[in-house]
Simulated assay, not measured.
Amino acid sequence: MTTNLTEMNISIEQAYDQLIDKLQGWLNATIEMLPNLVLAVIILVAFVILGKLIRKMVNRLLHKATDNKTIIDLLETIAGVIIVGIGVFIALGVLQLQGTVTSLLAGAGIVGLAIGFAFQDIAANFISGVLLSFRHPFGKGDIIESNDYYGTVQKINLRNTLIKTPQGQLVYVPNKVVYENPFINYTASYERRIDLSCGVSYGDDLEKAKKLAIEAVESLDNYDNSREVELYYEEFGGSSINFSIRFWVDFRQNSDFLSARSDAIMAITKKFDEHDIMIPFPIRTLDFGIRGGEKLNTVLGDGKQSTQEDN
Rank of each mutant, 00 (worst) to 15 (best):
Y179Q: 09
M8Y: 12
I31C: 09
V153E: 02
P166D: 05
R192D: 08
K155S: 13
Y179F: 15
D195L: 08
S262P: 00
G139Q: 06
Q167T: 13
S11A: 13
T269S: 11
S306W: 07
F89W: 06
L170V: 12
K56W: 05
R291Y: 12
S11W: 05
K211Y: 08
L97A: 12
I20F: 14
G141R: 03
S201N: 13
Y232Q: 13
R135S: 13
V81G: 00
N311I: 14
N311P: 02
F243T: 03
G303T: 10
N297H: 14
D302I: 03
N36P: 01
Y179C: 01
Q120I: 07
F47I: 02
L231E: 08
M33S: 15
E309Q: 14
D142G: 04
G80A: 10
P174C: 04
G238V: 05
H275F: 08
T269I: 04
E235N: 15
S255W: 04
N254E: 13
N222E: 10
L53E: 05
K155V: 07
Q18L: 10
T298G: 12
G25T: 12
I83S: 10
I20T: 13
C198I: 07
V38C: 08
Q96I: 00
L95H: 00
R261F: 00
E7M: 07
G237N: 07
Y233V: 02
T307N: 10
A188I: 08
I143S: 03
G151V: 02
V58R: 01
I12D: 00
N185S: 09
W26M: 14
I82D: 04
L131P: 00
I241M: 09
L23A: 09
D276S: 14
N157D: 15
V177W: 02
E191S: 11
I144Q: 02
Q167A: 14
S201T: 11
I290L: 13
I90P: 09
V200D: 03
F134M: 13
D263T: 02
N175M: 09
L74D: 08
L296N: 04
I82E: 02
N59V: 00
G293D: 08
E180F: 01
D205H: 01
K271R: 13
K208F: 10
Q253T: 09
E234K: 15
L206H: 03
Q24V: 11
Y16F: 11
G292Y: 07
A216Q: 05
Q154Y: 04
I86Y: 05
F126K: 03
F288P: 01
E294Q: 13
A213K: 02
V217M: 03
A124I: 06
G141T: 05
Y172R: 12
T77H: 10
A188M: 06
S262F: 11
K210I: 01
I241T: 15
L23Y: 08
Y223L: 04
Q24T: 15
N185C: 06
R135G: 01
V94N: 00
